[in-house]
Design a protein around this nucleic acid. Structure first.
Length: 296
DNA sequence: AGTCGAGCCTGCTGGC
DNA sequence: TGCCAGCAGGCTCGAC
């Protein structure tokens, strides 16, 4: 599931059941996800208190007592499910898929039982996710975080910043915006949607954003609010849920209903006065959706 | 140095 | 119905 809005949604859903709570039991059911889990992972977590939750790019962060941070990345198919004590057997879904408690346990890789009674299960069929512990003092230099670009919702994302990054860049806009070293947290879906909003073709060179006559190009000026608005609206909608199994319990995201281009190839463009058709092409091995008429 | 493609791993969908 | 190819929201590594 995980682009920025989905991770942010998961973070907000976990806050009431994790922040201020201790890990009373940690079950690690396999040695690795995309990367090996840390040595003595369960042992090191058990008894620790979660001070607060955070997010950096697509990484979910649980700041622990003892100056360490639990880092969780959901990869492509990771999900965190919260089971609350009073709802015996009923689970609240935080992530891409709704969760059927009756099956699919094969991919429940890590289970956290919290002092408040909530049980949090990390499930990830493709195991592209990761989980690790990082000392707070090492955080800034850690290889997962050292090269990350600006947070798009933090005010650091400006037209001037994009213009500077795009200077002399040969890559197309799609690859430029997917690059976590430039803007942290964007993925395939929201790049497609943001480019649609500002009318830029994903195949155009990123240099179109660079400075012109001493100031950021008009395209960079338009792209920034397009990125912000699409992310903010997605967070408000609770993220996007692409594979909506039948047992949705109402907590699945809803932004997928608002996609203008993603997954809509062959459909009419929804922009007023545009009679274009949404097209799908493959860029760098990934699907790109755009309107062939109003994105130029 | 910058860019591109392959590969990681599993599950679902659609076509035959 | 069963099989198989193609596809999937991320990220890293090696080759050019």
């Amino acid at each position: 599931m995980p682009e920025l809005p989905e991770v942010e949604t998961v973070k907000r859903g976990l806050e009431p059941v994790m922040a201020g709570m201790r890990f009373v039991r940690v079950e690690q059911r396999r040695p690795d996800l995309r990367l090996p889990l840390p040595e003595r992972f369960a042992e090191r977590l058990t008894g620790r208190k979660v001070l607060s939750l955070g997010r950096r790019a697509k990484y979910l962060l649980a700041f622990l007592d003892g100056d360490e941070t639990l880092v969780i990345h959901l990869g492509m198919s990771g999900r965190l499910t919260v089971t609350l004590p009073q709802g015996a057997g009923r689970s609240r879904v935080l992530g891409e898929y709704t969760y059927d408690t009756g099956r699919n346990r094969a991919h429940d890789h890590v289970v956290f039982a919290m002092s408040g009674g909530a049980v949090i299960t990390y499930n990830d069929p493709r195991r592209f996710g990761l989980m690790t512990l990082v000392t707070n003092s090492e955080m800034a230099q850690h290889k997962l975080f050292a090269g990350l670009g600006v947070e798009p919702l933090d005010g650091e994302l400006t037209a001037a910043y994009l213009a500077a990054c795009a200077h002399n860049k040969a890559v197309d806009l799609k690859a430029f915006l997917m690059d976590q070293r430039i803007v942290a947290g964007l993925g395939n879906i929201y790049v497609c949607e943001a480019l649609f909003r500002c009318g830029l073709a994903p195949s155009r060179g990123a240099a179109v954003l660079a400075r012109r006559n001493g100031r950021p190009s008009v395209h960079a000026e338009r792209l920034v609010p397009a990125i912000r608005s699409v992310l903010e609206e997605a967070i408000t909608a609770g993220g996007s849920t692409l594979h909506d199994y039948t047992q949705a319990d109402g907590t699945a995201g809803a932004f997928q209903n608002s996609f203008a281009v993603y997954g809509r190839s062959g459909e009419r463009c929804t922009k007023p006065n545009c009679r274009g058709t949404i097209r799908r092409v493959v860029q760098a091995g990934r699907s790109t959706f755009f309107c062939g008429k109003c994105q130029r």
